[in-house]
Amino acid sequence: MAMLRSQALVKVLTQANTGGIQSTLLLNSDGVLLAYAGYGEHEAKTTAALVSSVWNLHEQEGKGGLHDDKVRQVIIELEEGCVLIMPVARLLLCLCARSNMDTGLIRAKAHALAMHLEGPLLKIGTS
């Protein structure tokens, strides 16, 4: 039976927190936080709840049509930062960045992190 080493997971998420990325979150679709790397953990829980709500809005909207157009990524640009949400092995990966960081770089980091996490997280999901 495969188990999740939370410390190792947090270490991987921490690696993304450079060059303007303030926090990295891994959560499920209900908004429950699985792992978090960054500052202010009490804020992370609120962020996770809001992020999952935003994702579910976009995901629900694609369902029910004749052809299922799945959401691959949601990026929200705000005055003081940028938030990226993408699915990883039935979970959600969220990166919060400062406003001075370019969206393309956040996208690249999220993609790299998702590629790294996808395999191990899928193993846990199937065991």
Binding site: H58, G62, D69, K70, V71, R72, Q73, V74, I75, I76, E77, L78, E79
Partner: peptide, 8 residues
């Protein structure tokens, strides 16, 4: 919020 991008 300034804008949202939804990639499908």
């Amino acid at each position: 919020p300034k804008y949202v991008i939804s990639c499908k």
